[in-house]
Design a binder for these strands. Structure first.
Lengths: 214, 214
DNA sequence: TATCACGTGCTTGCTGTCAAGCATGTTGGT
DNA sequence: ACCAACATGCTTGACAGCAAGCACGTGATA
């Protein structure tokens, strides 16, 4: 009967739960104050524990951050990945952009933390290689979609896949950061709509200039 | 004859010179290690003085940063502003993008510092409003160009000026930050060319779909 | 000589890290 | 089923390092 006691948890459960809470708290704080503005003590207390717990679980601040980046990056990628690949390449890219911008409308702190960490990585020796890899993976995905679309004749053949991928990712990140900088000054809906239109116009083969469906 | 002694300077000269050197040193260090990784002592020593001089001249770190941001932002805007407004609106935007991406190829530390500070502003209470204003000014400029172009029939009337401005600035900033993150993984030339092509395609009126000149 | 730029010693507050002890969970013998 | 011995999570106090800011000393300029 002791098994059903709700207050009685196994050590592994306790440990896993506190680690999760710590990472969540760290993500919140990073989203609010940036990586530099966060202390281990604060993380522990935000998570509902004591000062020292983050150190106890992760040993060092760098280790906590490293693990957090893994988690946050994974969740961000999962959240921005479209449900399934569409049949038409152009629409596949439009869908990626749409999912991304849609997510920005109401950004959970974990995703916000990823964007903050991405921006921080520009001047952080530790974070830079990690985020650089993340970017490259995304760009490669975009390049593949474009090249596939070009081989099918769905995407204009004069489009440079690698160059376009940089611009595509740049636009997504840049829009997101503008929004973080000044939510009230950026019309996300307008930006979203504009980006979709631009995508179609710049990708569709020159002769096949059909109107959108709506 | 004491007037020509090169070692003899007026107090105002000494003061102004050291302030300039300090700001330059601060910009360099911020470009290298980010705002959080820079100490006042380091700034002073990099500038060729002692630990305490930054504090002596600016009183507080925040004051130094504030003044530095002013200077760096101004220089960045000057460097990215095209020589003169062109006759055709589409080409005006292409020119802006071209100047910007051209500057990225060999980025002086002052301009690099601006981009780093812009990224830092996302999670910095002090910097955020300043950078937000800077962004808004640029977006307004872009909007005006677009609206002017639309009234002249040079830019497609279905383009949303405010939304497009967000995407335009986002793309510039996003490309720049990708480059800072991983210079060796980003083909700047390809991105630049791709962006120009996309700009023309997405802005030109639908019926007037002339080939590029090359 | 008076003033200002600049250097140097010092204090103070903050943060990461460690170590010792307490609390909770686990295991094995009876 | 109970309880003692142990293991593990967690807290608390202490310490070291760093950086900002201050006070005073020195040398250059007026």
């Amino acid at each position: 009967m002791g098994n059903n006691d709700p207050t009685r948890r196994t050590q592994a459960q306790r440990s896993a739960e506190s680690r999760t809470k710590l990472m969540l708290a760290a993500a919140e704080l990073i989203a609010e104050k940036g990586l530099g503005g966060v202390t281990l003590a604060e993380v522990g207390e935000r998570a509902g524990y004591s000062r020292g717990i983050a150190n106890h679980h992760f040993g060092t601040k760098a280790a906590l951050i490293a693990e957090l980046v893994d988690r946050v990056e994974r969740e961000f990628i999962e959240a921005t990945a479209p449900a399934s690949s569409l049949e038409v390449s152009v629409e596949e890219l439009v869908e990626i952009a749409s999912v991304f911008t849609g997510m920005l409308a109401d950004l959970p702190s974990v995703h916000r933390a990823f964007l903050v960490l991405w921006a921080t990585a520009v001047a952080d020796e530790e974070l830079r290689p990690r985020m650089a890899r993340s970017d490259e993976a995304f760009r490669n995905t975009v390049e593949e979609i474009i090249e596939r679309g070009q081989s099918r004749g769905e995407i204009d053949s004069t489009v440079g896949a690698s160059g376009y991928a940089v611009g595509f990712l740049g636009q997504l990140r840049g829009i997101a950061l503008q929004l973080l900088l000044a939510p009230e000054l950026v019309d996300l809906g307008a930006a979203r709509q504009s980006m979709e239109q631009s995508l179609r116009r710049s990708l569709q083969p020159a002769q096949a200039h059909s109107d959108g469906s709506d």
